[in-house]
Write a protein that binds this DNA or RNA. Structure first.
Lengths: 116, 116
DNA sequence: CCGTTGTTCAACCTCTAAGTTGATTAGATA
DNA sequence: TATCTAATCAACTTAGAGGTTGAACAACGG
């Protein structure tokens, strides 16, 4: 697997279990047991998922007695958002073009495609 | 691997080669050979990457003679953006809290942590 | 000190991702 | 028809993801 930060983040997000964990953490700090509770898989499996999220910088783990409380760290999500930003113009542009096309069809001038 | 749309999209984006392909496609349609040219890997490997992108709905392939021109489809990126949106409040909130903390430090009242 | 709880480590299995090379198909052209 | 180009298909290798179970460690409570 690629090891650059963005790839690590995307890979971490490419799993429904891990996204569910993040959703739970968005509501506040939680222990591994609490996080594992909703899932039909072993605690160890969840622990591995957390390690993936940690490596991507999406969760930070504290230490309180025998617990390792997890908290959400959203910095990598901002990176993703920045990356997406480069394409936003793209899809907004596409929408505009589609919109124009729909207007053209409504106006009954659809035969005149001047698609560069 | 998970097969839900969001997971497919994130997985597709979790590779620098595929992100570079998307960046190239953002500038316009391209053939497989054109897309493969910058990379130090076989054409077949790039073809596989395109298949992954296609499965995620990020590229659409046409047919023109012996060429299969690829175009960027940004709808899945919007899905990602929507998903991210649920966390935006989170990290903006975090920033605010960090900001407050910095202000508190600047004011010399840093000992009084009332962290719920 | 002993047992319980929370969590991780280690070994293992299975499946798939990502690359390779070689053969094959589809269409253009001599 | 023969051949060149564009791209895919097929078979294979290697490495890692994602799950399991069982053992180990660390901290608390009796």
């Amino acid at each position: 697997m690629a090891t650059d930060p963005l790839s690590l983040t995307f890979a971490a997000l490419a799993d429904p279990t891990r996204r569910a964990i993040l959703a739970r953490l968005a509501e506040g700090e939680a222990t591994v047991n609490e996080l594992a509770e909703p899932f039909a898989m072993s605690l160890q499996a969840v622990s591995k998922h957390l390690k993936v999220l940690e490596r991507a910088g999406l969760v930070i783990r504290g230490r309180a007695a025998q617990w390792r409380p997890c908290t959400l760290e959203s910095a990598p999500l901002e990176e993703v958002s920045d990356w997406l930003g480069r394409y936003r113009q793209q899809w907004e542009g596409r929408f505009t073009r589609l919109d124009e096309e729909l207007l053209r069809i409504q106006n009954g001038t659809e035969g005149e495609q001047s698609h560069e």
